[in-house]
Design a protein around this nucleic acid. Structure first.
Lengths: 124, 124
DNA sequence: GCTGTATATAACCATAAGGTTATCTAACTG
DNA sequence: CAGTTAGATAACCTTATGGTTATATACAGC
């Protein structure tokens, strides 16, 4: 029998965030929003891209919770929402010891202690 | 004339990293590798996924520089390479002030100082 | 109410991504 | 050498992604 073909939607929030960040245009938009809210027109200005193109990027950012769009008259001013970025750094934090020199020295030190214990014998 | 259709390859390293992280399976693989090197078989064990499936994920992680694969006999032991993760946290760092309470207080304080300066007048 | 502006939506297209099965290569093991 | 094991590669399918143009909507100003 043919294997079940899983529909590929229903992405978890962290994956959605990473996916949203995996595009230079979208990261540039976030960078722009870091200096304050902006309308869609203002956001699209720097890019050689059609309006709907930018609109789609905004949808992606919004679904990932990285921006929020209000409405005043015919404008939809965008604001940065940084909580998902916090989640990203918190996800990465446990890996810090793999690149951070001082963390590595700490690791080595702890390892050294463990070895010593082993050789000396000890009770729980 | 028809608009030029840009070929969509040639992704920048940071985008490649984010894209690689935008998948729970790949993040799980990294988590596993955080506790030490592992063979492909060991890595695929937790997943209800075919061998080639895992192999593809490893390609993605490797292209993003997040793992390196050696070879001993018929095994290709994988090791974690964390430098791209460092790049990720460094990218996110400037946004910290948007979620970090104490940074926000600092911001407000600095703003307060600036205001005071303005009102009192000062020389460079 | 008409016109222009800001933005979203729809329909479409090409390519990438994530999965599968089937096949190939390389190394150990008897 | 035959068989098994580890893994990669190829070919294929489906859905997602990133872009386009064309069209619709909502509001502001005359």
């Amino acid at each position: 029998m043919k294997a079940a073909r899983r529909t590929h939607s229903a992405t978890d929030p962290l994956s959605a965030t990473f996916a949203a960040l995996a595009d230079p245009t979208r990261r540039a938009i976030l960078a722009r929003l870091a200096s304050g809210p902006a309308t869609v027109k203002e956001l699209s200005a720097p890019f050689p891209m059609s309006g709907p193109g930018v609109s789609k990027h905004l949808r992606v950012l919004e679904r990932a919770g990285l921006i929020r769009q209000g409405r005043q008259a015919q404008w939809r001013p965008c604001r940065l929402e940084a909580t998902p970025l916090k989640d990203v750094t918190e996800w990465a934090e446990p890996y810090r010891r793999f690149w951070d020199e001082s963390f590595q020295r700490l690791d080595t030190y702890v390892q050294h202690l463990k070895e010593k214990e082993k050789h000396h014998g000890h009770r729980a």
